[in-house]
């Protein structure tokens, strides 16, 4: 700081700007430190690690591209886990979003006791993944569970859901539908924020319900849909607690999610390097899917004119 008598305005202005910047950096310093230590640094380290074979209990050894090659040639489990994860995301995200949007539309119909209904549908979102999974294991219990007993009451035959190869992933999808509270509330808030003039105008034009939904509601909701789909994909690609607690990846690897395979590789089989390589693939998948959606977004996501 220049405090001599010859200071010109320019320098005062500049030093003030500098000082402001320094203050600002001081404010964001925690994030920068945290990023370097716990995110950025580890990401780089993770990439480096993926070229080593490191069991943690023995010194690391350079492995070159072997992990990446094995992943796509010899590790059948990796292929299975990618496929399982992909199927899960492909089924659970669209159905979940439709259900969340449907619920939000229902709640937006000027229902009485809105707060009550909203709470009911939101509640599962605060239940931990582990506790929720355990509740659902018990729901799906072959003889004693409420699912099979309930089906029996209405004359249907149940299944041993979590041990039935073709059904087990569906059973996990159903469990995931239970947790759509957050997207539902986002949709509801977006719906409530929709400008009524648009509908009035549509009424004047004599538009029907369906036309109004597709011409007004859906486009106006598109930013919320976009946001929810992106977040839904990011979280469901990382699904872990459910298969860990409910199925352990079985039966016959039918629920070996990428996250579970990765965890087992790292902490059961101590293949830290290989797990890092897989983690990078997971990162690339998420990155790819997100980028792809941002690409697509320009075609279908409608932003109001005042968007920055």
């Amino acid at each position: 700081m220049n405090t001599t008598g010859f200071t010109v305005h320019n320098t005062i202005w500049r030093s003030r700007r500098l000082r402001d910047a320094l203050v600002a950096y001081a404010f964001i310093l925690p994030w920068i430190i945290g990023f370097v230590l716990f995110v950025g640094g580890p990401i780089v380290a993770s990439f480096g690690l993926s070229f080593f074979r490191w069991k943690m209990i023995a010194p690391p050894r350079f492995y070159g591209l072997t992990h990446y090659i094995n992943m796509f040639t010899s590790d059948e489990l990796f292929r299975i886990s990618i496929w399982v994860t992909f199927k899960f995301v492909l089924i659970s995200v669209p159905i979940g979003q439709i259900l969340a949007l449907g619920l939000a539309l229902l709640l937006n119909q000027r229902v009485v006791m809105l707060g009550f209904w909203r709470s009911v549908f939101y509640l599962p979102a605060v239940v931990s993944g582990v506790a929720g999974s355990i509740i659902w294991v018990w729901m799906y219990h072959n003889e004693l569970g409420i699912v099979n007993n309930g089906l029996q009451l209405i004359g249907l035959e149940g299944r041993n859901w979590l041990f039935d190869r073709p059904m087990v992933l569906g059973a996990l999808v159903v469990k995931s539908l239970w947790n759509i509270g957050i997207p539902m509330v986002i949709y509801l808030a977006a719906l409530q924020g929709l400008p009524q003039q648009l509908y009035e105008a549509a009424d004047i034009d004599g538009a029907g319900e369906g036309a109004k939904f597709f011409a007004i509601t859906l486009p106006m909701l598109s930013p919320a849909i976009f946001f929810n789909v992106v977040m839904g994909i990011i979280t469901s690609v990382q699904t872990f607690a459910e298969p860990y607690v409910m199925t352990g990846g079985g039966p016959d690897n039918a629920t070996l999610f990428l996250g579970l395979h990765l965890y087992q590789s790292a902490f059961h089989f101590l293949k830290m390097g290989y797990a890092s390589a897989m983690a990078w693939i997971m990162f690339l998948i998420i990155f790819g899917l997100t980028a792809f959606q941002f690409r697509l977004a320009s075609r279908w996501v409608y932003y109001e004119g005042d968007a920055r």
Partner: peptide, 21 residues
């Protein structure tokens, strides 16, 4: 933008290096 894009980073990527730290 950097902060926002860290939302995309799965915990799995940083899990092993953090464990080592």
């Amino acid at each position: 933008l950097g902060i926002l894009s860290t939302l995309m980073i799965p915990f799995a990527v940083v899990m092993v290096p953090q464990f080592i730290i």
